[in-house]
Design a protein around this nucleic acid. Structure first.
Lengths: 338, 338
DNA sequence: CCTGGCACTCACGGCGTGCGAGTGCCAGAC
DNA sequence: GTCTGGCACTCGCACGCCGTGAGTGCCAGG
């Protein structure tokens, strides 16, 4: 186990490196942090930290920089989450309260996160699967063509075309609409399948095919995972990546365009609190030199979606985690109110 | 007026520079294009072209590169639009035909454009203002709360909440729904206002307030300009910008995140054909070192939205214009079919 | 276990230089 | 007049050299 002082040395290295973006040496360390020991001692500690794989030197006769493992230890043991200041909190709240609809909430959240953290922000739209149904509507577009519209409690609207196996009368349509709504309105998506499974039985033989088709379309819509949209912003902050950045930035931009990758990335974070994935901990190799800080947010107690930021491994973890957590909290409040 | 040969020299300079990304000198020009004259002659021509402001040298004793004005002349007079090859056309068509809904069409279009041109692609969602109404639906969410759903012929769905001044019965609701649809279904958005202006008169005094509210909400929805969403992609191609790119790429990324800027950019292009805006011709200064190639597309004869690409001024204009035009054409076809 | 001292390493930046691509100009040829 | 070959000139760039200094590892002594 590492001694207390060695951990302090690691903490100091991380802080300095994050601040200066340059390898940090033993002398500079003792000058900027009063560790109470001489550079020589720090050098021994650094050698030990290097043996353990927490820091590395880019080349001989240069200072040390933290490794992914070093950042991991820093995040887990050496740093807390830096809370937002009251003025910051007020600013967040004010900014988000101006939103007029769901799209706007998400858009504002992205901009806010990007500004606060000065990094790339990713916000997932509130997910269907944990939401509840506000209303289901059926419209007849043509004799054998229906449109199914699903409205969620988060204000989201999904629509699907339904091709009926047989013509479907207006009366049947109204009947189905009424029955559907009485059963599922206000219920959670996850409960819907069991609530509607016997619904077709209430209809005459000629309509059953259509009813089944409608129901299965509805169920598909509920689970449709490609509907998990997300919004990203602040990509201009990628330019703050560092000197070698042309090589780094490209795979990151590519990864950001692959929504699937991002959704998986956010989805992997299972913690109730803020999750940090550092460098190679990210499965996608384009993101191997980035860290992802994410957290769930939701209108009630439960999380319905995730948000987070993507930035260089060399980032201000406490500050970023604080910002992400605060934004998630206020977005949750806004969603609960609306 | 410039002689024919001088124009050829300019064309050659543009082509070489686009290919090599390096200033092109007189000797290299004569070697790669058989102009039939010696380097010395070309040098005189180049001096003339420089006097006229079509080319410039980055520094003494370097070759010449085209200026914005030079590219402008090249695009206007010296180059045509390079048509796609049949295999390319087939590929475009196949790729777009796999789309399942409007979002997918737009998403695929963005990816396609980005891939074909190897640049940043921007696609505006089919605009409401020139579309036609497929269906209007009204749902009662609460006694004095309605939801208005508008379905367009492009498959887009817009919804709005309507708070009624007075409770509104189911019968009145059905009546209004039927009357609304009989008047506006299949009509162009621009015709709707005059078609519904006297609709409230058909209702009893107690319902008129609500009907008016619904109608004004509908009209708002039709013109709502912030609904002009767009999708961008291929930002990873920004890394191909050049050597000095850290400085150039940042304002471009910022501009791309300002949807307002992009919409204005696309909106400015009034030509029926492909529009090219080169360098400083773009109002937004973040885009001063980029060119924007855009074109309208639509399901019928008329354009309902725009799409285009953003890339370095040093781009393959004929090829890019060809790709943009071809994609617009096929997207139009797809929209017309669905 | 900490400290000061010491020898060593090596990236970085400044400097000088040779190279060569490219230019402008001019006198002569067609 | 227009084109051409020749020529002197410019100047950015790549290269190699080297001094500097930050940083290191090791060791003997407190």
């Amino acid at each position: 186990m590492l001694s207390e002082r060695r951990l302090q040395v690691l903490r100091a290295i991380v802080q300095d490196y994050v601040g200066t973006e340059e390898p940090v040496g033993s002398k500079a360390l003792t000058e900027r942090h009063n560790l109470g020991v001489s550079p020589a001692t720090v050098r021994n500690d650094m050698a030990a930290l290097e043996d353990e794989g927490f820091i590395a030197q880019p080349h001989t006769s240069a200072g040390r920089i933290p490794t992914d493992k070093g950042y991991r230890l820093f995040v887990d043991k050496l740093a807390g989450v830096k809370p937002m200041t009251p003025p910051e909190r007020r600013a967040i709240q004010n900014f988000l309260e101006g939103a007029v609809d769901l799209d706007d909430v998400v858009a504002r959240t992205v901009r806010l996160l990007a500004q606060l953290t000065r990094q790339v922000a990713v916000v997932q739209y509130p997910s269907l699967t944990r939401s509840t149904v506000r209303h289901v509507e059926l419209l007849s577009l043509a004799p054998a063509r229906l449109m199914l519209v699903l409205i969620t409690d988060t204000g989201r609207v999904e629509q699907r075309m339904v091709d009926c196996p047989a013509p479907f009368g207006e009366a049947s349509l109204a009947d189905l609409r009424a029955r559907l709504n009485s059963r599922v309105a206000g219920r959670r998506f996850s409960d819907v399948p069991s609530l509607v499974e016997d619904l077709a039985e209430a209809f005459g033989a000629e309509d059953r095919g259509t009813v089944s088709t409608v129901l299965s379309t509805l169920l598909e819509t509920l689970v449709e995972e490609n509907e998990e949209r997300l919004m990203i912003g602040g990509t201009a902050n990628l330019t703050r990546f560092g000197h070698d950045f042309p090589l780094v930035i490209r795979p990151v931009l590519e990864a950001l365009e692959e929504q699937v990758v991002l959704l998986k990335l956010l989805g992997e974070a299972k913690d109730p609190g803020v999750t940090v994935r550092i460098g190679h901990e990210n499965a996608h190799e384009g993101l191997n030199s980035t860290s992802v800080v994410s957290v769930g947010y939701g209108s009630g107690g439960e999380a319905v979606a995730k948000l987070g930021v993507v930035g260089p491994t060399r980032m201000d973890y406490p500050g970023t985690m604080g910002a992400v957590r605060a934004v998630a909290r206020y977005v949750g409040q806004i969603l609960a109110e609306s």
